[in-house]
Design a protein around this nucleic acid. Sequence first.
DNA 1: CAGAATCCCATTCGATACTG
DNA 2: CAGTATCGAATGGGATTCTG
Lengths: 229, 229
Amino acid sequence: MKLQKVTDAGQAEPVRHGRRYRDACGAAFALELVGERWALLIMRELMFGPKRFGAIRGGLPAISARVLAERLGELEAAGVVRREMLAPPASVAVYALTDWGRQADEAMLALCRWSLQSPGHDPSLHLSSAGLMMSLRALFRGGADTAGEIAVGEDLFAVSVAKGVFTVRSGAGEAAAFRLTAADARPLMQLFYGKVGLAAAEAVGLAVAGDRAAAAAFGGCFALPDKLA
Amino acid sequence: MKLQKVTDAGQAEPVRHGRRYRDACGAAFALELVGERWALLIMRELMFGPKRFGAIRGGLPAISARVLAERLGELEAAGVVRREMLAPPASVAVYALTDWGRQADEAMLALCRWSLQSPGHDPSLHLSSAGLMMSLRALFRGGADTAGEIAVGEDLFAVSVAKGVFTVRSGAGEAAAFRLTAADARPLMQLFYGKVGLAAAEAVGLAVAGDRAAAAAFGGCFALPDKLA
DNA sequence: CAGAATCCCATTCGATACTG
DNA sequence: CAGTATCGAATGGGATTCTG
């Protein structure tokens, strides 16, 4: 009722909240689509693959079920998210970004890179596996070609550096030279944000398998930008 | 009181609204800083130079004075905006982006480029001169080197294409080959968004001075992206 | 006139409880 | 687990008013 109104033809038409910017600039239109509270973070959670309602909540512990349901409805009406029913016998609903929704990652990365220059950023907060991978993409500084896997809790990602381009995919990787495993993002943040060595990260819960030298070199590909103030 | 609390030492400490994301990802932190309603559009208005309170309102006719004052206070506390007192005899307050605040333009451009792919975008809405220049930057597709001036209402911008890079500055331009003048953004939107010729834009209020061929070529450097749906 | 302060109301958010 | 219902609290928007 709040999210959309059904026209005479029965078509869903996004009405959104009465609050519009009434501004023809693309930035304003983007904010109409994904500027509501939590919207961009929900998209981040879906950036590496479809997720169930509960899995999104898992990545965003501070969101309430009500707001999450509301946002998913709005994002679906906006064409950013698609609700899909998995085939039987699974028969559960998952939420996935549309192709267009996935293209918002450039904007998201730009926001990450910008905000991480601030000395006010607090890396001690909770970080989901999707948030970690997003941060890695934002923090990539370049380095030698390599490939590996990162396992965070239940989630597995294939990462690679090829020709100076860093790529993350969901799932197992081809020809992974190393694998970093941790129960949550904390130890990996130490390694990537904190610029500590592999050994220090292992002391706080990281497990390294495979080529240790390759893993260490990979860790050196990322750094927080220089702070401003 | 709502924007900041004064500590024992008397220092201003951004408390924001109780609503936090509690998420270590840079995207979440960016949203804490500039994710409130109107914040990014206020920054857009300041992107090409400092403005007075009333001038910002002029660019954002739908914002209320209360919310604008509140946002300016928050953005100042966040280090994105600086409130400056012009030297006498002017002695008026203006709001300017800090260096860091200006760096958010990459993220803003990415949002523009993303959202303008949507068929839902409505170019018939109001557009401020800052919004127009932002949109031009987002719509730039490349073209031959040139330089000119664009005058929208009271505002004057120097634009140039050099080595495939499009630049906008506030004020008069060096060696401008042409000048496009209009009372508001509408005729210029016709030219740049609408892909109509110079003559058609002149029919709706555009005035062209100087080298017409250069002006026409400049107009051809911009285009809306292909729509998705 | 610029812009801060105040009041009122509609909407939204967040937390908890509830249901299939 | 996947949402929905409900309610108090906070916010946004608009109008009005004060102050210099």
